[in-house]
Every structure is written in C-alpha cells, then in structure tokens.
C-alpha cells in the first residue's frame, strides 16, 4: 500500500513511523525545505519538498500510484484542494482531509471528500470516558444526528431479567442487537435482557440521555 501524507510536525513524523512499520510505502509532502531535510534523515520514507496542492508536486510524489492520500496541514482550504486533486485528477481511491474547523468536516463531506475533525474525535472520546462506565462505545452516525451506543448490562441494571417488550422506550429509540456470550442476537419483544449482556442501542441526541438511564438506572 502506498500512502501520501501532506503535512508537518510531529503528527506526520509519528504517522509515517507507524505506517512504515506496517510495511506501507510512505511519501511525505512538505513545503518547508529544512523540515524536509530533517524528516528525510529520520524516517525511511520518500520526502518531497513542495506544495501539496500543486499538481506537479503530486505527480513527483507518485500520486497516480498512491492508494491513499492524507492531508493534515493546519489549513483547511489546502487539505480540501489537496484531496480533491488527488481524488479527481490522480484517481487516488482514498483521500482523507483533516478539518481543523470542526464545521468544515461536514462541508468537506458534502463536497465529496472524506474528512475528520480531531476536535470531534477527542471531544467524543473524553465524553465517552467521562460518562458511565457501562457505556462501552459510542458512535455518532448520520452527521451526528443518530447515536449508536454499546452498553454493558451489569447487576444494577433495572432492565436485567425483563423481556424487551416490558421495557418502555421513548419514540425513536431501538435496541438493535444483544450480544450474549459473543453471540449477536437481533432481539424480538419476547426476548429477555440478562445481566452480562452487551446491547447496542440506536438513539437520537435528544432522547439519548433518557434511554441510557432506562438501561443503566440512575447513578453517578
């Protein structure tokens, strides 16, 4: 796999190290000549000095043979154009842009470029860690309009032992899957929830808290 990374600083350095350790072929594109020289000494990757949003630079970096493009510069406009050039002009199958402004993540998606926002990711992680320990996983989908949450039902759960039909859920919430002893079950109303189950629920941001409380009980 050949990966192109446009960006600077420690993130690029460590990403490059981890990719090359996995056996990927990495090409780093960076505008700063001095940083390029330093990077070239430190990592076993090709380093191209130039503007990543310039078609000639991308050609020099071998964009036409690349499997993935990662644009993580501090400028959103550059990240967008770099990825569009890679995807549209060079046919790179996967181009991912960093959205420094979290609002731009959605903008990029609408313009056809996969994007991620570290602010979102770190924010979610912290929220997840800080919230109930029964909540194992939380994944926002549909631009954050839907939450998919994995919950562990422990002995204190008020619904352990109840049939699903006895659990009153608000509108627009659903128990999608019950994972019991590593076996996924798509539950029906007469299926019982047991202590030790992990359940995957689908909620909307407006009823999320309320639904969580139903499965975990009120606790601090």
């Amino acid at each position: 796999m050949k990966v192109l990374i446009v960006g600077s600083g420690k993130t690029v350095y460590f990403l490059c190290k981890s990719f090359t350790a996995k056996g990927y072929e990495v090409v780093i594109i960076n505008r700063d000549h001095q940083e390029c020289v330093q990077l070239a000494r430190q990592v076993s990757a090709t380093v191209v000095c130039g503007d990543g949003s310039d078609a000639n630079t991308l050609e020099d970096a071998g964009a036409m043979y690349a499997d993935a493009m990662l644009a993580i510069t501090p400028n959103d406009q550059d990240n967008l154009i770099i990825c569009q050039l890679a995807a549209i002009h060079f046919g790179v199958p996967r181009a991912v842009a960093l959205a420094n402004d979290p609002e731009n993540a959605e903008v990029f998606q609408q313009l056809g470029i996969s994007a991620f926002s570290t602010t979102h990711i770190i924010g979610n992680l912290i929220e997840q860690r800080a919230s109930l320990e029964q909540v194992i996983n939380l994944l926002p989908v549909g631009e954050g309009r839907v939450n998919v949450t994995e919950i562990h039902l422990d002995e204190a759960s008020p619904v352990a032992g109840s049939a699903l039909s006895e659990v009153t859920l608000p509108k627009s919430a659903l128990v999608a899957v019950v994972i019991r002893e590593n076996q996924p079950i798509v539950p029906r109303g007469d299926d019982r929830l047991l202590e030790g189950d992990r359940i995957v629920i689908i909620t909307l941001p407006e009823n999320h808290e309320q639904v969580l409380k139903i499965f975990t009980g009120s606790r601090k």
């Binding site: 078609a55 959103d76 903008v107």
Partner: peptide, 30 residues
Amino acid sequence: WDNVNLMVAQIARKLFHVPHVLARVFDPHR
C-alpha cells in the same frame, strides 16, 4: 490564495447554490 478561492467558491456554488460564482485562480493547472 488559490485554495481559499476554490474552497469558498465550491461552498457558495455547491452547498448554498449561489447562481453566479467566480473564483480567481493563479495556477493554470488548478
């Protein structure tokens, strides 16, 4: 900055459907 112009022009045209959008771009390739 070409990239700024291209980004905001796309937002205006594709997301906000402004009828007439023009961007200055210095690089002929781009």
